[in-house]
Write a protein that binds this DNA or RNA. Sequence first.
DNA 1: CTGTTAGCGCGTTCAT
DNA 2: ATGAACGCGCTAACAG
Lengths: 354, 354
Amino acid sequence: MKKTPPAPAAAPRPRPRARAEGGVTLQDVARLAGVSPMSASRALNTPARVSQDILQRVQEAVARTGYVRNSLAGALASRRSRLVAALVPNVAGPVFQDLIQALIAALGSAGYQLILAQSGYGVLPDDLLNAVLGQRPDGLVLAGVVPSAQGRQRLQSAGLPVVETWDMVAEPVDMLVGFSHEQIAGAVATHLIADGRRQLAFVGGEHARAQRRARSFVSAALDKRRTARGHADAVAVESVPAPADVRSGRDALARILARQPKTDAVFCSSDLLALGVVTEAQARGIRIPEQLAVVGFGDLSFAADVLPALTTVRIDSAAIGATAARFIVERAEGRPVAATTVDVGFSIVTRDTA
Amino acid sequence: MKKTPPAPAAAPRPRPRARAEGGVTLQDVARLAGVSPMSASRALNTPARVSQDILQRVQEAVARTGYVRNSLAGALASRRSRLVAALVPNVAGPVFQDLIQALIAALGSAGYQLILAQSGYGVLPDDLLNAVLGQRPDGLVLAGVVPSAQGRQRLQSAGLPVVETWDMVAEPVDMLVGFSHEQIAGAVATHLIADGRRQLAFVGGEHARAQRRARSFVSAALDKRRTARGHADAVAVESVPAPADVRSGRDALARILARQPKTDAVFCSSDLLALGVVTEAQARGIRIPEQLAVVGFGDLSFAADVLPALTTVRIDSAAIGATAARFIVERAEGRPVAATTVDVGFSIVTRDTA
DNA sequence: CTGTTAGCGCGTTCAT
DNA sequence: ATGAACGCGCTAACAG
């Protein structure tokens, strides 16, 4: 049986949703200014494209009403959220701070905001990624690279600008701003060997990236053809649990000396670890750098100012952050990005410990 | 003249907007599952309220299509963004890291995400606040309190849950999870005076909050009725520019000794500064703690493991973050929050430097 | 330069 | 337990 179409007057239309309490909308502003909502929108977003008159009236109405833009609605309509998500293994560590800081600064001045999520060191959890992508960010910055082929696949099919950082890989998901851990390991090994060190050690985290660094360091140090000055006789590797801190560094040196008593140089994957190694050496009366050379990583703010001053590998994380932000913004605004892979390099800052 | 209504067939209707390329919507999922969009929505958000059959079909369709929720649209419709914004004076400093970490963790497990913005130490910039509020966060967490009455006003009229942290004030904007810098200053002063110190010094940042701490410390230390053990003879105050780091601490001690050569105790507003003071003292052959006592702030991860181990004020920032997150979430879900102000207290961790 | 129309993708509200 | 209709607040696309 066909349903009788209800008479218009009798139509049981659902009661309109209650308006938000204090919510001033762009319509309210437009009404007060005596213009169309669209003109109000333009006055706020592309002021160059409206007349002085309208611009002024809208601005006045905004001031009077205390209007605050609803970016959610704008994002839905324009398909651009002006949000960028950063996925960082560990927010608390000092390592990625400058990166985050640079990201926030560069994005902020371009009108974008940062969603910060913590990914852990292992495989990127699927539900975290979903939660992040659900916000429809205009771009994704990863502190690190995506290890699994599956994760790469997912990110690529997400169809948004992605910048991996903090590493160099042959096949990035999309864009890449980083440096080569292998090169660094090689350079540090060469530096130490040239200094006459033969019993080397490496201290780093337990996660995959740190393990890769360890391997690079070992093979560079033992490589008989690497340098004219010779090569290492032995390289001990110690892993420490995250977060890498001073305590871990102290413990690691203790273990290294137990296993390889004549160790004369240690390369640490973080300045905090290096400070720990130095401290433990001091506690044991080991002279630095005479008996033991120590090289850190990161050139954290304290590295230059502790005693002895830390020799370390310096990375320009601020440049990484700024470049990553620029890449994301360029792509989000539809402009092409010239270089899709950037190696920001590194430098060894020679101070007192090596 | 009245406009002729165009014949329906001739109506020049604008071409519908192009659909997003890869955008799978909930409708697509529903269609594939053979249910209404509404049922698909329920299957994802309140699975308890749909039949097993529908639930399964929807889940299958989601898996097949690779559907990713559009939280923007959801937020617009439901008026709940599941976003929480954190405003931090300085992202790069180590001070607020544990707080941010705890926030991300607690919010994440409740299904919320974090927008991180950097506010600087001064007055909260109006356009930053607008940008943040434009995302319609379900709550705001401030690292610090709002100094200006005007800022308080704005936040209150924004009508969202606000948690201030890291301080205690008489009239918070809304909720407050912090500790009393005055109490800490008093406790440290008492501690040092009881230890026989009489020529005190304070090292802190240049911003208003640090200045308040300095004043509290000075008045507590000089207060003749404060402790049975006596009171300080003099208190020097040194300000350092942000960010407070080891270098600043070293320089500050140098200036203090120039002005007040017999200084026998220094209270630093950050462990990094304290490490700098200790380092500079060592460089000058000043024995710690015999000639100079040093107290830091924060109990950062290295404090216990450097030599000498830092005596410091410990704050449970993880608890602050977790509590703040809980408050926001409770309020966002419409549940009342029992206590609106929480003092998490502090403790003085006595190690080797005082 | 300005206004009109339509719809972004979802959840609320009501009805069944 | 399920579905239909509507609109959250804004901007793209077009017409003038």
